[in-house]
């Protein structure tokens, strides 16, 4: 709702909005305080003392490093696959009004529209039917499937803004389809793809609901964290890892925001 004149919001609305925003952010900030607490048995507040010791302890934990590595490899591979699949789908869908294009959009969105537990159990059932042993690839397959939609949404929005006459103008000026893609289409969709890729990375890096069903005995960082939540072994290490996870996912999200600022909003779980 754009208004021509500057209006003052009613005080009650302002308070409710600010309180709502605070509700959305304060709990995460709390994690940062806990990463420095000296208390190691309970979640005592306020922290009895502050220390940097847990960063060192975490640094020397091979299980944390292994989980982090698995998560990074998974997220990077799943993102790469999602970029290829999502871009191809978006290009095809925006290219023509072919038969079944609504179906394709639905198919892409379905893995994220249905609750994650369904995607998870479905993949698990399929792996069990096909006698496929759990591996890095079973995790990646699951992640890529629900990451496609993130890239797709960003790419489709940009393709829609990329006026069809630009492609026609390029061909009109003598560029064949590959030259047109290289010189006109790619530069215009690159930031959207990058933004989509970053969001897909954040989504994959952080995913646990589907991963549990497709991971077998392996631990991604979120699975490691979940284990610690259910059966805490060393709470301060969990605190530090949680803080690192917040920071690691923050970067791609901010990156995606700045890449698409002023053109279109990064799209992902919604739209």
């Amino acid at each position: 709702m754009r208004s021509s004149r500057i209006e003052k919001a009613p005080l009650g609305l302002k308070l409710a909005a600010v309180a709502g925003l605070a509700f959305m952010h304060l709990p995460i900030l709390l994690i940062f305080a806990y990463a420095f607490t000296t208390e190691e048995r309970s979640y005592q507040w306020p922290p009895p003392g502050l220390t940097l010791r847990w960063f060192e302890v975490t640094w020397n934990r091979p299980d944390v490093w292994a989980a982090l590595e698995l998560s990074l490899v998974t997220a990077a591979t799943a993102t790469a696959i999602a970029i290829v699949l999502g871009t191809l789908t978006a290009a095809a869908v925006s290219r023509t009004r072919f038969f079944g294009r609504e179906t394709i959009s639905l198919l892409v969105i379905l893995p994220i529209a249905l609750p994650g537990v369904i995607t998870g159990i479905a993949l698990r059932a399929a792996f069990s039917v096909g006698d496929i042993p759990f591996s890095l690839w079973t995790i990646i397959v699951g992640h890529a499937t629900f990451c496609v939609v993130v890239v797709y949404n960003n790419a489709v929005a940009r393709f829609r803004r990329l006026s069809g006459s630009l492609v026609e103008a390029s061909m009109d000026l003598g560029a064949n389809q590959f030259q047109t893609f290289r010189y006109i289409v790619l530069p215009n969709i690159a930031t959207a793809l990058l933004a989509g890729g970053m969001l897909a990375f954040a989504l994959s890096f952080d995913e646990v609901i589907v991963t549990i069903f497709t991971a077998g005995q392996q631990q991604t960082l979120p699975i490691w964290m979940l284990e610690e939540l259910v059966r805490p072994r060393q709470r301060p290490v969990t605190n530090v890892v949680a803080m690192v996870v917040v920071l690691v996912t923050l970067l791609p999200i901010l990156g995606a925001y700045y890449l698409t600022r002023g053109t279109d909003q990064p799209r992902g779980r919604l739209k």
Partner: peptide
């Protein structure tokens, strides 16, 4: 060559 209605400048 074509001059497009919306000019289609890159």
């Amino acid at each position: 060559n074509t001059v497009f209605q919306d000019y289609a400048l890159f």
